[in-house]
Amino acid sequence: MLRHLGQRLLTTIPTLVGVVVVTFLLTRILPGDPAAFFAGPTADPAAVEQIRVTLGLDKSLPEQFVAYVGDLLVGDLGVALSTGQPVVAEIAARLPASAELTLFGLILSVAVAVPLGILAAVRQGSWIDHLCRLLTTAGVSLPVFFTGLLFVYVFYFLLGVAPAPLGRIDLFASPPPHVTGFYLIDSLIAGDLETFRASFAQLILPGITLALFALAPIARMTRASMLSVLSSEFIRTARASGLAPGTVIVRYAFRNAMLPVITTLGMVFSFLLGANVLVEKVFAWPGIGSFAVEALIQSDYAPVQGFVLTMAILYVLLNLLIDLLYGLIDPRMRIEG
């Protein structure tokens, strides 16, 4: 197991190097002259030259790459022009908001998709199977920003049951004392049920929007994987031995069927992290996605690059986690490892 862990960690290194190289290249193919851009429209050529030297843009590409990696190692991603703060600080302050939303969406979609997929496989051809097919087809066809807006219209404007889609907590409430940065957890730690309720109310619509989007691949994979496991011989044997149907499905089939689903989670995270940006924009969620979008509109590139890099590193780490989880669940990996 430890050897497996070590080997898996080693394979992450080239991926991380690739990510850093790509992000570096993205910073260097900016349209126009970054030095002139940073100097502003009124700067004279000497000032531009001065900034070029300060930014290290007068050096060769390999030298610039070394400087870039050096900056990264000390956590320097540049300064956000709009706020004047270091990009790292800005992203760190906003990351919990994004993480809370993404995790909430993921948990919600797994909680719905896995039972749905299992039921669809067990009762193949029944109404629940059709519902599963409908939801998975709709899930991949619905633009996530459109579903979000539709929810806002129905639940905020028409029914009035949801709060205004303006951030993590309503304007008059104050956020709970900072412990984890997750409002739901922090408010529980503080024992403040009113704040918990308020932040949960804000979270529910964007959470469902994200969950609906992630539902499709998980439910589809659960159904397909359950179907193939249920038709295998060890299930027939278990049934023939007179085990209760529930035991056969949960203890025998489900445990085996979960492995491909966990592999799918990697792809689901890729979708979720991307969809997160759009959902944050729709619900004015103060996460790193909406931070990057605001920076993009103001042509402020350092935050965008910091955002892309952060997301990529997060995604690589999540994939690592999924693979390790896979090793923990599948006993065969332990022997081979």
Binding site: G274, A275, F307
Partner: peptide
């Protein structure tokens, strides 16, 4: 390397650059 990025995020980065 391309697959190491969340795809929509990479698309954002490419268009920005």
């Amino acid at each position: 390397t391309i697959m190491a990025f969340p795809l929509f995020v990479l698309a954002m980065g490419i268009v920005a650059a």
